[in-house]
């Protein structure tokens, strides 16, 4: 994934400026930054949900703006709160998503439901779900297409301890066995530290990168914020 010179400015002055970022196949990259730093904007631009003012995004060598459908085919994403057609069950929701991809079977749907711990609730309406269960569904909807790149924006929001452990285990297993790339934004710094091998700090709309090392991530983050404030 290659982002070149990406800028997106909102009328309130917030946004991201001139971002260059390259993420390689199989990496798990954590995006960190304070509220309003532009993490969600970056992920929305990266997945084509928002058009950047300037700059370019290439996924698997394909320009997302000129060839959206082909570029986004191998991407699964959960950006913002999990959304679903709430009058339907998670199974039907996933079935609807699966129609847009080729080669996804009912067995794949069952497997994703199992991975996210939703099998006992597969026929219940999503409107009856708690926030954490909806979040689990959001993760299931990102996994269902067997993507090569998974973008997760605050995936741990609303998850209970079981959900958190299950998510961590799922990400680690998928990454280990399928070489899938993950881009994860979160405020849970310790969670990211356990999962990611590279970090992207997004502060005041600008990025700086950090490879996982011996120094605690929290210390690195505090130092980066202090430098940015100065």
């Amino acid at each position: 994934m290659v982002i070149t010179g990406m800028t997106k400015q909102f009328s309130n002055g917030r946004g991201i400026q001139n971002i260059d970022l390259t993420i390689y196949q199989g990496e798990i990259v954590g995006i960190l930054g304070p509220n309003g730093a532009g993490k969600t904007t970056l992920l929305k631009c990266l997945t084509g949900l928002t058009s950047p003012d300037r700059g370019k995004v290439e996924l698997f060598g394909i320009d997302i703006q000129s060839n959206y459908k082909e570029a986004i085919g191998p991407v699964g994403a959960l950006i913002g709160p999990a959304v679903a057609y709430e009058k339907m069950s998670p199974y039907i929701n996933l079935k609807m998503i699966s129609r847009l991809y080729s080669g996804i079977t009912d067995t794949d749907i069952d497997m994703v439901l199992q991975q996210t711990g939703l099998t006992p609730f597969k026929d219940e309406k999503i409107s009856s779900f708690s926030m954490g269960m909806k979040q689990r569904f959001g993760i299931a909807s990102a996994l269902i297409s067997k993507p090569r790149l998974i973008v997760l924006d605050e995936p741990t929001n609303g998850l209970d301890i079981d959900g958190l452990l299950l998510l961590r285990k799922t990400i680690q297993e998928i990454s280990k066995h399928s070489g899938v790339t993950f881009v994860i934004s979160s405020h849970h710094i310790s969670e990211l530290e356990k999962l990611c091998n590279r970090f992207c700090f997004l502060i005041n709309g600008e990025v700086s990168l950090y490879e996982a090392g011996n120094e605690p991530l929290e210390d690195v983050y505090v130092r980066k914020v202090e430098v940015a404030v100065r």
Binding site: T47, G48, L49, Y68, K69, E70, I72, G73, V75, G76, A77, I79, G80, P81, V83, A84, Y85, E86, I97, L100, Y101, V151
Partner: peptide, 12 residues
Amino acid sequence: ERGTLFQVRPIR
């Protein structure tokens, strides 16, 4: 309103 209009899916 519900946020389901645009999702990351391979559809133009």
